[in-house]
């Protein structure tokens, strides 16, 4: 479709506008104020994040998107309490975040399940740490496994599951603690396209049915638009918020919406922000262009 015929991504239909009004009336769960992060490395200081400001309302679905190395993981790790920040504030329910805690659930990109525990025991881990009895923890675990559709695999070990199933266990394991916010760092990044789209729909279903706020990192534009209420677009070197986009695609979402004008308009805008004109590609990436050496017979051509 010709981008000129697209509506502006800023145009919101009535229902979408009403929805954002409703969201904005809800209380703020997470607030990030002027957040900065510098890493000290042997090569000197790296400024990973600078002046990040945003807030997330209750039961909002926020995606964070940006080029590789822009500090998405750093940001979410700070929110999770796994990393200290250098400046600014992170407030969860108006209280500053200090270290990791059960009020923030996290799903990692890599498989972070405990390999020595069965699926059920993995989900029971949080409640048991909290001091719940075995029976109570087991009951909770069953409930959440049912919610992610894995009750049949309760006694399997993680290595016996597919990638998608493992991530569903990871989601159940995080949600069983009933966190205020679920932090997800490219949770479906390692999955094949089909599993991935199933997982996206599944995540939306979960989110619709329980009181949970989601902050979701991805570098897949379609995924971000399909899932999010708002998209936080970061730029790299240093990581800064470029724009916060309110997704104009109405809910309920379905994969059929990938070709609607609102969807395409939003995508065009994201592409513009994330992949600007090639001239501005950072120098080091061009320098990294490999020099190809021919390892095959000169006459043995594949193209």
């Amino acid at each position: 479709m010709n981008p000129n015929t697209l509506p502006s991504y800023l145009d919101q239909s009535e229902p979408v506008k009403a929805r954002f009004d409703k969201i904005n009336q809800r209380e703020t769960i997470l607030e990030v104020r002027d957040l900065g992060k510098r890493f000290r490395t042997p090569q000197g200081e790296v400024e990973a994040l600078r002046g990040i400001n945003f807030s997330v309302r209750r039961r909002e679905f926020v995606c964070v998107i940006g080029p590789s190395g822009c500090g998405k993981s750093t940001l979410i790790r700070i929110l999770a309490g796994l990393e200290n920040h250098s400046s600014g504030d992170v407030l969860l329910d108006d209280k500053p975040v200090k270290g990791p805690g059960q009020d923030r659930g996290m799903v990692f990109q890599g498989y972070s399940l405990f390999p020595w525990l069965t699926v059920k025991q993995n989900v029971m881990f949080g409640p048991k740490i909290k001091g719940h009895g075995k029976d109570e923890a087991e009951r909770d675990a069953r409930t959440w496994l049912e919610l992610v559709g894995l009750e049949k695999f309760a006694d399997a070990y993680p290595h016996q599951l597919s990638g998608g199933m493992r991530q569903r266990v990871a989601i159940a394991r995080a949600l069983v603690n009933q966190p205020r916010i679920l932090l997800m760092d490219e949770p479906f990044g390692a999955l094949d396209a089909q599993t991935r789209s199933k997982m996206q729909s599944h995540l939306i279903d979960i989110w619709k049915n329980i009181d949970i706020t989601v902050l979701f990192i991805t570098h897949d534009l379609d995924e971000a638009i399909y899932l999010a209420d708002r998209i936080l677009v970061l730029k790299a070197h240093p990581g800064e918020v470029q724009e916060v986009i309110e997704v104009p695609v109405p809910r309920p979402r379905s994969p059929g919406q990938f070709n609607t004008p609102e969807f395409l308009a939003t995508k065009a805008r994201l592409e513009q922000l994330i992949h600007p004109a090639p001239a501005s590609e950072p120098e080091d990436e061009q320098a990294a262009q490999p020099q190809m050496i021919r390892f095959t017979n000169v006459a043995d051509n594949v193209e």
Partner: peptide, 22 residues
């Protein structure tokens, strides 16, 4: 794996329990 320990920490594990349970 560092992720395993980090996952345990986000689930509320701290101190000695991190050692014995993870």
């Amino acid at each position: 794996e560092a992720t395993i320990i980090e996952a345990a920490r986000t689930l509320g594990t701290r101190g000695v329990k991190l050692l014995t349970k993870v």
